[in-house]
Amino acid sequence: MPSRTKTAMFGSAFFTCLCSFVVICVVLATQHWMSSEVRFLGTNSSTTVSLIYGLFSGTCAQSIDAGLQLSTKTFTVADNLSNTTAKSMITAIIVILVLSLLSSLLSSGFTCTNTVSNPYQTFLGPIGVYTWNSLCGIFTLTAMILFPVSIEENSLSVKLAQGCFAFLQTHVKSEHTYGYSYWIMLLVIFLNIVSITIIYFYDHARYSKKKEQERPIENAPKDVILF
């Protein structure tokens, strides 16, 4: 059976890993990654399209000459993107987040195993926790980088607006605001760092105690008589 210290430390790490898993689920499930105001110039009027979307779906609304407000439409991101590069980028972000989710799940499993038992295999101990938490953080950070790249390089909001309203003509300007679905990925990275830190302190304390128990014989008490 594991010691109380190990149970407490790995139990705390298990909680942070589980929170990370839940947050990634929220990131994938919610569609508030981006809010955009995209302005187009037509022959006789200007049009502004307001978009709120995520990786899978979103909503768009159109206003003409800042006066006439048309009804809000719901759209699917994949269906509104005719550009293969933009669609591939969104697919890549989804795949990376799924890998991050699996890494977080494996990290939760490893910390839970160490909370209730003492696995003999080295990788099932702290090394495994370091590995899966690091991968989870790297995958999440990669997704955070790729999404803005897709917005800027592929003009994602413009293409989605044109997919909603086919008659839009010349794009004038765009204004973007990242939503909570995007920013809470920072919480995932923070939770992974906390998990690694907790296990590092446990592993360092255990190593120090082991070294202390293996002190050289010259450090033994001088009054010991050897026969």
Rank of each mutant, 00 (worst) to 15 (best):
P2R: 06
P2L: 06
S3F: 04
R4K: 08
T5D: 11
K6S: 12
A8N: 08
F15T: 15
F15E: 04
T16A: 04
T16E: 02
L18A: 10
L18T: 09
S20H: 02
V23N: 04
V23Q: 03
V26H: 10
L28Y: 00
L28D: 01
T30K: 15
H32P: 03
W33S: 01
S35E: 07
S35N: 05
N44A: 06
N44K: 08
S46L: 04
T48R: 10
S50D: 02
S50Q: 09
L51C: 04
Y53N: 06
G54T: 10
G54M: 00
G58C: 07
G58I: 06
G58D: 13
G58E: 11
T59S: 14
C60E: 05
C60G: 15
A61F: 02
Q62K: 15
S63L: 05
S63A: 07
I64D: 04
I64C: 00
D65Y: 03
G67Q: 13
G67W: 04
L68G: 00
Q69K: 15
L70D: 04
L70N: 14
T74A: 06
V77Q: 00
N80S: 14
N80A: 14
L81F: 07
S82L: 14
N83S: 15
A86C: 09
S88A: 15
M89T: 13
I90T: 07
V95L: 14
I96H: 05
L97V: 00
L101H: 05
L102W: 09
L102P: 07
S104R: 02
L106Q: 04
L106E: 09
S107D: 09
F110N: 03
T111C: 12
T115A: 08
V116R: 13
V116Y: 15
S117I: 03
N118C: 10
P119Q: 07
Y120W: 00
Q121H: 14
L124C: 08
P126C: 11
P126K: 15
Y130L: 11
S134E: 05
L135T: 04
I138P: 05
F139G: 02
F139L: 08
F139I: 06
F139C: 15
T140Q: 10
A143F: 01
A143R: 03
I145V: 13
I145S: 13
I145L: 15
L146E: 13
F147N: 08
V149G: 02
S150Q: 10
E152N: 10
L156K: 14
S157I: 13
K159L: 09
L160M: 03
Q162I: 08
A166T: 12
A166Y: 12
Q169P: 12
T170P: 05
V172Q: 14
S174D: 14
S174I: 06
S174F: 05
H176E: 07
H176C: 06
H176Y: 09
Y178E: 03
Y180W: 10
Y182Q: 00
W183H: 14
I184Y: 01
M185R: 03
L186K: 01
L186E: 01
I189D: 00
F190L: 14
L191W: 04
I193G: 11
T197S: 07
S208A: 15
K209N: 11
K210W: 08
E212S: 09
Q213V: 10
I217N: 05
E218R: 14
E218G: 10
A220L: 06
P221N: 00
K222M: 09
V224F: 15
V224S: 08
L226E: 12
L226I: 15
F227H: 13
F227K: 12
